[in-house]
């Protein structure tokens, strides 16, 4: 089997994988990073969103081999010890989740929006969430959370 190497949350990792191994399988099953979820497995729901070289991507639709050498960030890499990332804290403060299944993907997606648009409007947030499905919240508090998180990140 071929070997794949990448950086995940700042750590170098390497493993032998079958070429058909998806990035999400590699993260969850090889590295034990189960914060990245598999929802629909058809690249629609966004529960599996991670960052690849800083850009959000659906890890259920990427082969682990494709990200050889890349810098991957998952939800586990955001908090600083017990201190939540401002975007995570905003979700807690604003009741931005109920069951929480979609939340890791939504947070990673939101951070990609803020990367290119530090002060998004409500409409821009709602449009950006096209690739993230939530079946609990009706999105309202997710949008509130992202707007608050973006503000908090501006300091």
């Amino acid at each position: 089997m071929p070997t794949v190497s990448m950086t995940v949350n700042g750590k170098s990792v390497s493993a032998e994988v079958e070429p058909r191994t998806l990035l999400v399988q590699y993260l969850r099953e090889h590295l034990g990073l189960t914060g990245t979820h598999v929802g629909c497995d058809t690249s629609q729901c966004g529960a599996c969103v991670v960052h690849v070289n800083g850009e959000s991507a659906k890890s259920c639709t990427i082969l682990a081999m494709q990200v050889e050498g890349a810098d991957v960030a998952t939800i586990e890499g955001l908090a600083d010890g017990d201190t939540l990332h401002p975007m995570q804290e905003a979700f807690r403060e604003n009741h931005g989740l109920q069951c929480g299944f979609c939340t890791p993907g939504v947070v990673m997606s939101a951070l990609d929006l803020v990367r290119t648009n530090a002060d998004p409007s409500e409409r821009e947030v709602r449009e950006w969430l096209e690739g993230n499905l939530c079946r609990c919240t009706g999105y309202h508090n997710i949008v509130k959370s992202i707007l608050a998180g973006a503000k908090a990140m501006q300091g």
Binding site: S43, E55, S56, A57, K58, S109, D112, L113, E130, G131
Partner: peptide, 9 residues
Amino acid sequence: IGDPQVRNR
């Protein structure tokens, strides 16, 4: 096209 994550790839 699609959504932001699809457009990134």
